[in-house]
């Protein structure tokens, strides 16, 4: 390896990584605060994870083992192409096993397997501002964060209940971090919200188009907003996985034909596969080799 390629490890140049790392450090120091950063153009369209890729690139070291998931799955287009991107530009080892990975880039899910100390979970964030659809002015939302003026956040939940009889927000569910900033957890299902709090891993959030980075340090407090008489409830499809029989994992509903047949499967493919290897077989599952 020449000095030149060593200098440009993981696609971004060192000055850019330095800038991103400063934003990450500031984000970790002020949990939930959106730190502006000079987002670069990446070789993929906005909305495909440009923020997450930049944060991952700034965190990676040659010894890392990377896992990339999209909606919990390791084998979807977005996950495969980002994983291959870092294999080519950083030459790091990759894995599909949650427990083996040191850096996990994710879109819309937190893995079912509990994360451990030393792991980094990088989220791809489309819209980092939890107040965006309530107050369109960025100057005003910044002021509201500054002054902790969060009454509006509950107006959204109030509207949910008055219109639907319950809090209908099922993903992108706002949390209050360490009693201070209200944070948008990226569009993870609210089923995953309890895993944000007290997590042993470092959780980093990158929004490329919006040029914001924010973070949850390990073991942070993150409380999902709710009402006393309508408390927060993590919800999932009322079913067990049809492949691995897991009763407590987040499920995708898959239409299997045009006769209305459907099946529920774990959205976390690694979790599902490892359960099947361990001998847990659901009604539509088949045993997997290597168990």
């Amino acid at each position: 390896m020449t000095d030149q390629t060593a200098y440009n490890f993981a696609y971004l140049d060192e000055q850019t990584k330095r800038m991103i790392r400063r934003a990450i450090l500031k984000g970790v120091a002020i949990p939930g605060y959106q730190v502006p950063f000079a987002s670069r153009e990446m070789p993929m369209p906005y909305g495909w994870g440009t923020g997450g890729v930049q944060v991952t690139a700034a965190c990676l070291v040659p010894e890392d083992r990377l896992k990339v998931i999209d909606q919990g799955a390791d084998d979807t287009t977005n996950a495969v192409s980002i994983r291959r991107f870092f294999q080519r530009t950083a030459g790091v080892a990759v894995t599909e096993a949650t427990a083996e990975a040191t850096v996990i880039q994710t879109r819309h899910r937190i893995p079912e397997t509990p994360l451990t100390e030393g792991q980094i979970l990088v989220y791809q964030v489309p819209i980092p501002e939890p107040l965006r659809f309530l107050e369109p002015r960025e100057t005003e939302t910044r002021k509201m964060h500054e002054l902790e003026d969060y009454g509006l956040m509950h107006v959204k939940l109030y509207e949910d209940i008055s219109r639907h009889g319950q809090i209908a927000t099922a993903y992108d569910y706002p949390v209050k971090v360490e009693g201070r900033y209200v944070m948008d957890p990226s569009p993870i299902p609210k089923f995953d919200n309890p895993k944000l709090a007290g997590n042993a891993a470092i959780q980093l959030f990158g929004a490329g188009r919006e040029q914001r980075i924010y973070a949850l340090p390990p073991y942070s407090e993150a409380i999902s907003l709710d009402f006393d008489d309508y408390p927060f409830a993590a919800s999932k499809a009322d079913h067990a996985c049809d492949l691995c029989a897991a009763p407590d994992s987040y499920l995708d509903e898959v239409i299997t034909d045009d006769q209305g047949s459907r099946m529920f499967v774990c959205s976390d493919t690694d979790f599902c596969a490892s359960r099947r290897k361990a001998g847990h077989i659901g009604p539509m599952g088949t045993p997997m080799a290597g168990g």
Partner: peptide, 21 residues
Amino acid sequence: GVSAGGNVGERLMAVGARHYG
């Protein structure tokens, strides 16, 4: 864009009311 009830309730929620009913 917010219902009449939400409009009236906003100030209450801003000063800490957290009981929907």
